[in-house]
Nucleic acid binder design. Structure first.
Length: 463
DNA sequence: AACACCTCCAACCGCCCTTGT
DNA sequence: GACAAGGGCGGTTGGAGGTGT
């Protein structure tokens, strides 16, 4: 007997077969996977040669002469053994439908973890490492799927996780990085030691986002809501630059992440190599010494214009930057800027932690590229430095400008230019012209992100 | 006290990318 | 190159606890 083609059971395309009805009646959600007879027949997991199918077929063959087919199926699947096979079958269904569950979900526990489960997971990983997450639950004696175990470990049980209140410094960093990177929580998390992306995401959604909104700042664009309206009129330079930074930093972070992965692999095979460099992981090889360089070079190759001139076609889904601005950043990061402004120029001393930091930004100080703009080496820098009002308002406010109270319209309109000198970080009034705001802004943002122990209080934000 | 509503965050879901075969 | 498995990521959800009425 050919189980699936017994004449009348064949359905016209799209309709549900008797099997599906029978199985559905037994509590299997056949509609969920969109099963039809044709699909069922085509699924690899339900092929004629699979063991469960042969077994079922044998039972059917023995009895079907005088028993209603569906009733027979029901009687069979009611047996425990058959149910188990149906569970397998259901898994095959999901896989074949393009969904690949992380594990067989039948009988697995969901929801909050108990202390006992945590203990099991911790004990297992402590002893064996996690290895394959999919295989872990069975080995550790957990009724969980591997994905659930991985999440529990990475977001909660890992020993190097800091829990509890976020410090002001951490909040600043999150906001600044969010302005640059958007909702790229994992990228943001790389700059917040011991914090998980999930925790940062939750904190943003439950605290920071609301706080910004209360202050009249759009948490998505990091601009004053009124400014968002006015920028639609034409002056979109600020957002353009912001988008550009996001694009640039995004690419750089990806390169960094890749290098860290590679370094980790190298560390396994040659731990000594790590120790030879003060920055540890990120500089374990010559290629890793300048983490930003590869991506910048690649970008330059891709977008290098024939002549030094404006280019307006360098766009991405998230950016409408012009070429001068992008080249400024790329060149600075690639080491074309005088001084020690090398891309990823790890200048940290012995005490620097081997964690990912925005060291390319530390080297990419505005001091360097502003100073270089007049020395003839990069004449286009001076041109490029006229960056409009980028960032002078919102982030400056967050970082503790004395005039940070000027949220909303005022900062949006005038760039929140300080009227008095800042006590902790005096603002040279000369900086306020010819790109001075930018210099001040970027120095502040880079310093703030890189500083592990800032004493500056972002007053307005916490008022 | 009881109920409704709100806040928060651990956990889940589904998509996508990478890696191995 | 095609495919499957593993894992990472961002968005969303559900329920516990807190707060207001």
């Amino acid at each position: 007997m050919e189980l699936w083609s017994s004449g009348e059971r064949k359905q016209q395309g799209g309709s549900t077969c008797s099997w599906c009805s029978a199985l559905g009646a037994l509590g299997f959600d056949m509609a969920e996977a969109g099963e039809t007879y044709e699909q069922w027949k085509a699924w690899p997991g339900s092929g004629q040669n699979s063991d469960w199918k042969r077994e079922l077929q044998a039972k059917l063959s023995a009895d079907r002469t005088d028993v209603d087919e569906c009733a027979l199926i029901s009687s069979i699947v009611n047996e425990k053994a058959s149910l188990e096979r149906l569970a397998d079958c259901r898994l095959s269904l999901s896989r074949a439908m393009g969904r690949s569950p992380c594990c067989e979900k039948v009988g697995l526990k969901k929801g909050p973890w108990t202390p006992e489960e945590d203990q099991k997971l911790l004990a297992y990983i402590d002893k064996h490492g996690h290895g394959s997450w999919r295989a872990l639950p069975a080995k550790a004696g957990l009724q969980r799927c591997g994905k659930s175990c991985r999440l529990r470990w990475t977001n909660y049980l890992r020993p190097d996780i800091k829990r509890g209140e976020f410090s002001m410094q951490e909040e600043q960093t999150i906001i600044q990085l969010h302005a640059l990177l958007g909702n790229r929580w994992s990228a943001i998390a790389t700059h917040l030691p011991k914090r998980t992306d999930n925790e940062i995401k939750n904190y943003w959604n439950t605290h920071l986002k609301k706080r910004l909104a209360k202050m009249g700042i759009d948490p998505c664009t990091h601009k004053a809501k009124s400014d968002a309206l006015s920028s639609a009129d034409g002056d979109s330079r600020s957002s353009t630059n912001l988008s550009h930074m996001a694009q640039w930093e995004s690419a750089r972070l990806e390169a960094e992440a890749r290098l860290v992965r590679e370094s980790k692999l190298r560390a396994v095979s040659n731990p000594a190599a790590i120790l030879q460099h003060p920055m540890g992981t990120a500089a374990a090889s010559p290629s890793a010494a300048k983490p930003s360089l590869d991506v910048i070079r690649a970008w330059l190759v891709k977008h290098q214009p024939a002549e030094h001139g404006e280019r307006s076609d360098l766009e991405s889904p998230t950016s409408t930057l012009n070429f001068t601005e992008s080249r400024l950043l790329m060149a600075a990061a690639a080491g074309r800027v005088p001084g020690n402004a090398t891309a990823g120029g790890y200048q940290g001393g012995e005490n620097m932690e081997p964690e990912i930091r925005i060291d390319s930004f530390a080297g990419f100080s505005t001091e360097h590229f502003l100073a270089s703009s007049g020395d003839g080496e990069a004449p286009w820098l001076a041109e490029a430095c006229g960056w409009g009002q980028f960032g002078a308002g919102f982030t400056g406010m967050l970082l503790g400008d004395k005039n940070s109270d000027c949220c909303g319209d005022s900062y949006a309109n005038n760039g929140c230019v300080p009227e008095e000198e800042e006590e902790e970080e005096p603002v040279d009034k000369e900086e306020l012209v010819e790109g001075g705001e930018n210099k001040s802004y970027w120095n502040t943002i880079f310093n703030s992100i890189n500083s592990s122990s800032s004493s500056t209080s972002p007053r307005a934000f916490y008022n």
